[in-house]
């Protein structure tokens, strides 16, 4: 059992947790994740380690409530416990001085990019991060991102904040200048990562994406997270989660993510039924700070 030291909503349905996990806090590197089981009989889900410090023994996670498990987790408050936390898992991001780096992220992916952007900056790169969101209130971690990057560009689909439009347009603007990026990292929804991969491919810019296949053990034991990378089967939990975007078969991953939609629906319906949540909830909860 790991104790939650703080939990607060930073956007509707996105909660930031600080959790006690001393060994993981000591060992984790940017790009790595933990597997969390929220409760007894709960699912094991992967969550990126957003931050962590060996001094305090705490790690930070940011969770977007999209289904039963993440929504259950987002009901937890400071002082509560999560059943299991194991990690750090996955290979750390390869950090080196590339020169000019562009990070592209959307939604909770921003949280995942934060520690990587920081490390890339510390390695001496010029780092521009493009954050995309549907609408203003879904932009997370912008402030933290600004403190670690040379420049942050925000785009919203509806134009309520930053530039109106998609992250792809912001990247396209950069690609059209003379100084092309030496390295691009994209973390977010699959269609976004796929689009970015197609944009950088003609320029042969080394591009990495962080894949989010469905996982169970996270240790390479089950093969459920497998993905086709350049024609070879790789296990995202141990060989990734980051891969060369130009080798990834995105369509297959998108398909495999839909394996359990029917069951996920049942779980979510039960959750909603048991918790009598209404549309307002995420807003009500948002005010709770603890």
């Amino acid at each position: 059992m790991n104790k939650i030291l703080s939990a607060e909503f930073i956007a509707p349905d996105i909660k930031r947790f600080v959790i006690e996990a001393p060994l993981i806090a000591r060992k984790r590197k940017p790009g790595q994740f933990v597997i969390v089981r929220v409760r007894e009989n709960g699912e094991r889900i992967p969550l990126t380690i957003v931050d962590g410090s060996p001094e305090t023994g705490f790690i930070t996670l940011m969770v977007q409530g999209i289904g039963k498990t993440t929504k259950t987790m987002n009901q937890l408050k400071s002082g509560d416990f999560v059943q299991d936390v194991v990690g750090p898992l996955g290979k750390p991001t390869h950090i080196e001085k590339f020169g000019f780096v562009v990070c592209v992220c959307g939604g909770v992916g921003t949280a995942e990019v934060l520690p990587i952007a920081k490390a890339l900056k510390e390695a001496g790169n010029r780092v521009i991060t493009i954050i995309g969101a549907r609408t203003k209130e879904l932009v997370v971690a912008e402030f933290e991102m600004r403190t670690v990057c040379d420049e942050v560009i925000v785009t919203t689909d509806d134009g309520t904040y930053g530039k109106k439009g998609f992250v792809t347009e912001a990247l396209s603007a950069i690609l059209n200048t003379d100084r092309k990026p030496d390295f691009v990292l994209a973390v977010g929804p699959l269609p976004m990562m796929k689009a970015i991969a197609e944009m950088t491919r003609p320029y042969k810019i080394h591009t990495e994406v962080s894949l989010n296949s469905i996982m169970i053990d996270g240790t390479g034991m089950c093969g459920g997270c497998r993905a086709n990378i350049g024609g070879k089967t790789q296990f995202v939990c141990v060989d990734g989660p980051e891969f060369d975007a130009h080798l990834v078969d995105f369509d297959q991953i998108a398909q495999r993510q839909k394996q359990f939609v029917a069951q996920e629906r049942i779980s979510l319906d039960r959750f909603v039924h048991e918790n009598h949540t209404c549309k307002l909830d995420s807003y009500i909860n948002q005010q709770e700070k603890s």
Binding site: N41, G42, E43, R44, T69, Q259, Q263, S267
Partner: peptide, 8 residues
């Protein structure tokens, strides 16, 4: 669905 992990 008493336990959260699904199977096909």
């Amino acid at each position: 669905p008493e336990a959260d992990t699904p199977i096909h």
